[in-house]
Simulated scan of single mutants.
Amino acid sequence: MSRKILLGAENIQQLSWGANNGCEAASLLEGLHYQHHALNMSYGQFLLDMPISSNANPYEGFGGSPFKNQPGDFEAIFVRPLMRWGSRYGRLQNLSGANPSWLYDAVGRGNPVVTFVTVHFEEPQWEDYPFGRVPVNNHAVLLDGIADGQVHVSDPIDGTYWLSSDKFERIYLARRMAIAVFQ
């Protein structure tokens, strides 16, 4: 990265809406709004439209409730159901499995990227569930800036900030889950 790009996507603070577990929807809506999609949708309305998995499997829909922790549930929604839902509002591309450079290229072309990381970019804390092994400190942020040795994110818990690309990549590469949001 030899250039500095900051898209300046909005920041939706999920906790101010009472959504302890709504990071994927917040990050996606930030990207959709940036691309001028779903502008009439508030975060609260967006959450109420989110598909919920009947068996709390984030590979099928949102597992549990974005508003409260439920024992045994994994309150998250992963890439495929998030793509199916989000595609109703705007153009998305699954970048899961991509090297970080692909994510940076998307941002360089003006397309923010929902990335699955961990809360506060801490090391993943893995646990087993009926649907597989996942980090219980799962989190999603919107990647909306790049610079030499740094990336910028709009984080639904911690706000907007720059962090080292090394730290971002280490946590992103633990799962390689991402969605680009297009105009």
Rank of each mutant, 00 (worst) to 15 (best):
G22D: 00
E30P: 13
L95Q: 06
P66C: 02
N99L: 11
P112H: 07
L103T: 10
T115F: 05
L82C: 05
S87F: 10
A9E: 11
P100L: 14
G110V: 06
L48Y: 05
V114C: 14
H33Y: 04
S96K: 07
E10R: 11
A76D: 10
P66H: 00
L6R: 09
Y89L: 07
P58C: 11
Y59N: 15
N40P: 00
Q70Y: 08
H33I: 08
R88G: 14
V113T: 12
S96N: 12
R109G: 14
A38S: 13
A98I: 08
N69Y: 08
E24T: 15
L7Q: 05
A19V: 02
F74K: 02
N11L: 06
D49T: 08
H37S: 12
L6V: 13
G63K: 01
G72C: 03
Q93F: 13
P81C: 08
P112M: 14
G22K: 01
H37E: 06
M50A: 05
L32K: 02
D73T: 09
L103D: 09
G61I: 03
Y59P: 09
A76T: 10
L82N: 04
I77S: 04
F116T: 13
L6S: 12
T115L: 12
F62G: 06
L95K: 04
S87Y: 12
I12E: 00
F62I: 06
A19Y: 01
N55I: 13
L32R: 03
L28T: 12
Q70M: 12
A38C: 12
Y59R: 15
L47Y: 02
P81L: 06
M41C: 09
Q45C: 00
A19F: 01
N40W: 12
D105C: 01
L48W: 05
N99V: 11
R91A: 14
T115K: 06
F78K: 14
T115H: 05
I5F: 01
K68T: 10
N40E: 12
Y34Q: 13
R88K: 10
G8C: 08
L47K: 02
L95P: 04
Q45E: 11
N111K: 03
R109T: 15
L103A: 07
S27C: 10
Q45L: 04
W102L: 14
G110Q: 03
V79C: 11
A9K: 11
E75G: 08
F78W: 15
W102T: 13
Q13I: 02
F67L: 11
H37R: 14
D105T: 08
Q93A: 15
I52S: 03
W102Y: 11
Y104D: 08
N111A: 09
A25M: 09
N111I: 06
E75W: 00
L92F: 06
A25W: 00
Q14I: 01
H36T: 14
P100K: 07
L82E: 05
A98K: 02
Q93M: 15
G64W: 02
R109P: 14
A19D: 00
G110H: 03
A56P: 15
Y104R: 11
L15V: 03
A106F: 00
R84E: 14
L47G: 06
H36W: 07
A9P: 15
W17C: 00
G61M: 02
Y34C: 13
G8K: 04
L47C: 07
L32Q: 05
